[in-house]
Design a binder for these strands. Sequence first.
DNA 1: GTTTGTGCTACAGAAAACATAGCATGGAGT
DNA 2: ACTCCATGCTATGTTTTCTGTAGCACAAAC
Lengths: 114, 114
Amino acid sequence: MTKTPGLPVRGSTTGRPIMVLFDILGQRWTLRILWELREERLTFRELQNRCDNMSPTILNGRLKQLRDSGFVDHEEGGYGHTDIGRELTDHLVVFDGWAKNWAEKIGMEYEAPQ
Amino acid sequence: MTKTPGLPVRGSTTGRPIMVLFDILGQRWTLRILWELREERLTFRELQNRCDNMSPTILNGRLKQLRDSGFVDHEEGGYGHTDIGRELTDHLVVFDGWAKNWAEKIGMEYEAPQ
DNA sequence: GTTTGTGCTACAGAAAACATAGCATGGAGT
DNA sequence: ACTCCATGCTATGTTTTCTGTAGCACAAAC
């Protein structure tokens, strides 16, 4: 079941791009997968390891979806971002700094390990 | 079950803020709820309507979570963003324009209704 | 005192995700 | 040729999450 802008998705019959995007990102592990690929290409199993040993069934499903959506490809060296996938992930990277700020405001200072 | 930076979440034992954020956003409807509140306060039922009549059970759960996380409050006029919730949502608004671009690249020109 | 709006909760069924096992392919080494 | 290992999955049964529908409790308006 491919999710493409223009086609209806869960929670939206119009296929409006932002809704399609929300539908994709609002599934468990999707954001995390994009995130983990931010620095280097990873094999299926490396990716699985970094994603807390998530179920391969789901990982495979997500990767299929991300490839269908044009965010991820699978070439020499494993799975990695396409150009547009990198663009999307760059936006996510912004959230990293932002989240630390949020963490402080919410009353919890998080200290990075090491 | 409150999700707070510093406490472990699904897929991350460290409670690293970005992971907590991904855990929250990577649930169905959460992105959508933040999105629908971007312009005005909405009552529970208005919000439900805009979110494709999502199940009130889940809506209630999400709202609890978003309040616990400090993104949403419930005051005069219904549910709405806190300052930090607005900040987060501003980032999401960026995705709207971006998603249209993505839609074109992926080979589907989406025309907004009306 | 009945109707309308609001903010939910209850509950049964459907869908998604999980954990674990294991298979098929391909290359390296011996 | 054959074992060994990495890689990319699929299969299966269980658990968790989400859905859909019904309905309750409170408050204000009429």
